[in-house]
Amino acid sequence: MASPVGTLIDARAGQAARREQILDAACACFVRNGFHRTTMQDLAREAGMTAGNFYHYFRSKEALVLGLVERERESGALLVTRLQQEGDRRSALFGVLGQYFGSLTREAAVLRLEIWSEGTRNPAIAALTAETEAEARAWFEETFADLATASDCDPSALYALLAPQLKGIVLSRAILPDFDTGMAVAQLQALIEAGLTGRASLPAGEPRSCPAMESRS
């Protein structure tokens, strides 16, 4: 006979799996039909659920998008943690670029564009997206500061140069069938190396030295 605790754990595991299934269904629907052309009935049908059961997990399409953003945020954090545990900070940095951007599928890129677009109209989605991007920015800048070998390194300026190109990879992957993400990531790596060694022309800003360099001097 199953214990009450075991039954509760099984129920929670089942709910978590069902939630993932629904988020996967939302991905498929939003990529195929777009956010606004997708109905809750479409989503329930894609997930193989009744509408009533579907609403038990997500009350609206907005809640689904927030769930997708949060899932991507958690996935990115897990990737960073794993790569940093497996190697040094440099390999983690280039591993993130290669695995997140170099292996980006067209479907994932289209979904990201849908979320960005909806964020221009929905404050809750915009706020969560901005929070996620702020976390990414903080990690990149901290990593740049740690890896820099140029005494006049400016991690903030280097990220300002990098960020639009990261978004450009997503956009290009979504709309250009033959876009080479591997080549784009290789170019980003070269840019970062140039920035870390003081060979890149960075945006004008307040001069700032790297904490890592100060600790070495």
Rank of each mutant, 00 (worst) to 15 (best):
S209K: 07
E114F: 10
A127D: 11
F179W: 07
T50M: 11
G119W: 09
A108N: 05
L104P: 03
N53V: 14
M183Y: 09
R121H: 07
A174C: 10
G102D: 02
A63R: 02
L83K: 08
Q165K: 03
F30P: 01
E214Y: 07
C153H: 08
S172T: 03
A25P: 06
G95M: 00
A11L: 15
L176F: 11
R18I: 07
A194N: 15
L23N: 08
G102W: 04
P207A: 12
A186E: 11
L83Y: 02
E135R: 15
A47C: 02
L64Y: 04
E206S: 12
G67Y: 07
G34K: 02
P4D: 01
D10T: 10
T181Y: 08
G168N: 06
E135F: 14
S91W: 02
L196N: 07
L166E: 01
R106I: 06
V31H: 01
D42S: 05
R199E: 13
S103Q: 11
A157H: 01
D42I: 04
S3L: 14
T81H: 13
T39H: 03
R37T: 09
Q21K: 15
S91R: 09
Q15N: 14
Q85T: 07
E193Q: 12
L188Q: 09
K167W: 04
A17T: 06
G48N: 14
G102E: 03
Y159K: 02
I169C: 03
E214V: 11
A109V: 13
R19P: 06
D88R: 10
I22M: 00
A145I: 02
T132I: 09
F179D: 00
F30Y: 13
R121Q: 09
H56F: 12
F140M: 03
V31Q: 04
A163D: 08
Y57M: 05
P177R: 00
E74H: 11
A160I: 03
S209E: 11
F144H: 05
I9E: 02
L166F: 06
S172Q: 02
L43I: 03
V31Y: 02
M49H: 08
A51Y: 14
A136Y: 12
S217C: 09
R73V: 00
S156H: 09
R37V: 09
A13M: 00
G182V: 12
S172D: 08
V185P: 08
I22H: 01
D146N: 04
L128H: 04
Y100S: 07
S75D: 12
Y55E: 11
R37C: 12
L68H: 06
P4F: 04
I115G: 10
A63E: 11
D152K: 13
N33S: 14
R216V: 10
G76A: 13
S60N: 05
M49F: 10
Q84N: 12
F101V: 06
T81P: 01
Q41A: 15
A190R: 13
A44I: 10
I192C: 02
G205T: 00
L93C: 05
G198E: 09
G67A: 01
E72W: 05
A200K: 03
A28I: 12
S151T: 14
G182D: 10
R199D: 10
L147I: 00
I169T: 05
E141L: 01
F140K: 04
Q165H: 00
E74I: 15
T129W: 05
M40K: 13
D152V: 04
T132G: 12
R32T: 10
R18Q: 15
E72Q: 07
T39V: 01
A194Q: 15
A16V: 08
A134Q: 08
V185E: 02
S172V: 00
T7H: 07
R82I: 06
P211E: 00
